[in-house]
Design a protein around this nucleic acid. Structure first.
Lengths: 162, 162
DNA sequence: TATTGTTATACTCTATAACTATA
DNA sequence: TATAGTTATAGAGTATAACAATA
């Protein structure tokens, strides 16, 4: 007899899991995106947001490092950085010792904007998630951690140095 | 990643949950997106994919219904549909009885493309997810279901008919 | 007048290819 | 020659505002 009442004993294949992820993740993403966009002052796109996050963690990162991190091409990132610089959210300065290389850093405004966007987005998600039970929250936290291990960004050390 | 002995008894706030979701979902999304894009023949964007999915479920839907479903503005969807029609993935015909309204349907090519993209994306996600344990799969399935209830699309029946 | 959809306009994202400057 | 970045070009996503056609 299968215990139908409790789903947690049921074995799911990676395949069933994949189908659900492919369906639901874009749904959640839609909300996150529209939360970051359109929201008065901050108004960052998701890639911009992720770039600022990365620069907070890795001040002085190069354009290539940003590109590798967020998974975009170098030209795309170059243009995006140009816009962030134009908005005074990021500063560029060339690396001493290698004048080809660009060092990127958040400006105070960039850091503040990042924080504001984080807060707004988080608050909105939190409000939606508050409809769920503590058990459901726990399952989501666990799931996110698992997904992070599998879809996590390549660490800097894994970049091919040639 | 500490080997949290048993995380499932820990109480997480909606807030902690939100922070993780905001961080991880875009990560997973990046993979899904690049899986659908660049992949030889199918080559659909995520919104296009979701549109085809919707049309498979709701043949004859209008442009407005698609827009409401995938959460985009009417002009955006109008343009996207134009491209899908240009690629012969979708056909348009005006509704008998109300010549303002457009009925959209998948072509056989559209249905095949949708299926091919579904398979490729699912297979790729599945491959990645196969690195996880059955318990982790179960947590992900549960989490996705919870997220679906909270971020799920408005059901058709909830559309104001006026 | 209200509804459905398209066009106009203006960004951003995104890629590949070609180029510049530096090493 | 190889590397870091930018520029050129092109197409898609996205929005708001203005418009056309139909009801």
């Amino acid at each position: 007899m299968k215990p139908l009442a409790d789903d947690s004993n049921q074995a799911y294949s990676a395949d069933e899991c994949a189908a659900l992820v492919a369906e639901i993740v874009p749904l959640v993403m839609r909300t996150i995106r529209s939360e970051m966009r359109g929201h008065r002052s901050p108004d960052l796109s998701v890639p911009q947001f992720r770039t600022l996050l990365f620069l907070r963690r890795q001040p002085g990162a190069s354009v290539s490092q940003v590109a590798g991190h967020i998974g975009l091409s170098l030209p795309s990132v170059s243009k995006m950085v140009y816009r962030l610089v134009a908005r005074s959210l990021v500063v560029r300065h060339s690396a001493p010792g290698d004048r080809r290389r660009i060092c990127l850093e958040l400006t105070p405004l960039g850091a503040a904007t990042l924080q504001a966007t984080t807060n707004v987005t988080r608050a909105h998600l939190s409000e939606r998630l508050s409809a769920l039970s503590p058990d459901e929250h726990a399952a989501i936290v666990q799931a996110m951690r698992s997904l992070q291990t599998v879809f996590g960004e390549p660490t800097l050390s894994s970049y091919p140095e040639t």
